[in-house]
Nucleic acid binder design. Sequence first.
DNA 1: AATGTTATGTTATACTATTACATTAATCAG
DNA 2: CTGATTAATGTAATAGTATAACATAACATT
Lengths: 166, 166
Amino acid sequence: MGVDCRGVPGFPGEGHDHRECVGQALDRAAEHCRRKSLRLTPLRRKVLELVWIGHRPMGAYEILASLRHERQGAAPPTVYRALDFLIAQGMVHRIEHLNAYVGCTGPDHPHAGQFLICRSCGLAAEINDSRIDDAIQDSATEAGFSVGRRTIEVEGVCPNCAGAKD
Amino acid sequence: MGVDCRGVPGFPGEGHDHRECVGQALDRAAEHCRRKSLRLTPLRRKVLELVWIGHRPMGAYEILASLRHERQGAAPPTVYRALDFLIAQGMVHRIEHLNAYVGCTGPDHPHAGQFLICRSCGLAAEINDSRIDDAIQDSATEAGFSVGRRTIEVEGVCPNCAGAKD
DNA sequence: AATGTTATGTTATACTATTACATTAATCAG
DNA sequence: CTGATTAATGTAATAGTATAACATAACATT
C-alpha cells in the first residue's frame, strides 16, 4: 500500500497514498539541497509542500492563499521567489498554458517537462519520453536551430476521467 | 526575389520580401473566410496584418499600440476579440511561454502549432513535424490519455543568429 | 563581533486578460 | 423596404498574473 507518485506515466490511481507521496517529494528535495549545499528554507519547503499537496497545477495566487494560513503577511514576491528557486532546482515545473505550477518528482534526472494535463480533473502527469525529445531534436537540427528550453504540454482526458464516463 | 514565408522550416533568410509575405497571408485569410462564409472585417484584417508585419510573436498590448495609430479608441477587448477569431480560424497561434501571438501560414492543413523560437532575434518558426506529433500521440496512448490541444514551444537559437556570432 | 551574502518582508506597480453592458453594423424573414 | 435578429465593436471597469525597488532579517565567514 502506498503506491508512490513517481511512476511514469503518472496519473495516480486507486491505491495512491498521498501523504506518503508528499513526504517522499519533500525528502527528495531535502536530500538534493543537502548534496548541493542549497538552502531548503522553511518557506521554500512549505511552498513545495503546498504544490505537492495539490498534486496538480496550482496558480501562484492559489499557493499564496494557502501559504497565508500560516504566514499572514505573505505577498506575491514571497511565493514567486520560492517558486523561482524550486523551478531552478527542477523541483517544480511551470505549466505555461495554465499559468500554474506543479511538483516534479525530482531533479535527479534533469529534463524538460513534458506534461499530459487532464481537462476534466485538472491533474497533470509528467512524462519524459525520449522519443518526443528525439523527434524535436531531429526536427530542430534539420532547421539549423539549436535547442534550449522546451515546453511540451498536451491537454486532453486522462484514463481515470475517460473511465468515469462509462 | 520574393521568397515567400511559407517555407518550412521557416526562418526567413536573406531574400525575404516581407511586403509580399504579408500580402500573401492576408490573401489566404480572405480566401479562407470567403469559403467558410466568415467575416474578415477591417478590424480582424488589420490585426492579422499587424501580427504578420511583426513576423514574430507579438504581445496583445503591443498589437494594441500599433492598432491605435489608426483606431484611436481601441481598447484591450478590441484586440483580444480579433485574436480570438483569428486563433479559432487557425490564422494566428498563441505562444504560451511568451504570452504572445504569431501569424500562421494558414488553416489549410489544420494543425497544432509547433514552434522554434529564437531567444536572440525573437523570431518564431512554425514547424509541423509529424514525427513530433506521432511521438506525442504514441506516448499519450500508452498512458491511456486521449490527446487534445498540444503546446510545443522550443526556445533556442536560430541559424541566422548562430551564424551572426562568427 | 564585523562583514558580505542570501533570503525574506513590504509596498507599489506593470503586464496580461476578461466581464459587463452599450452601441453599431450586417443578415434575413416577411 | 421594414423590422427583428444576430454578430461585431465600443467603452469602462476590473480581475488575474508577475515583477521592480528598496528595507530588513538571517546566515556564513573571518
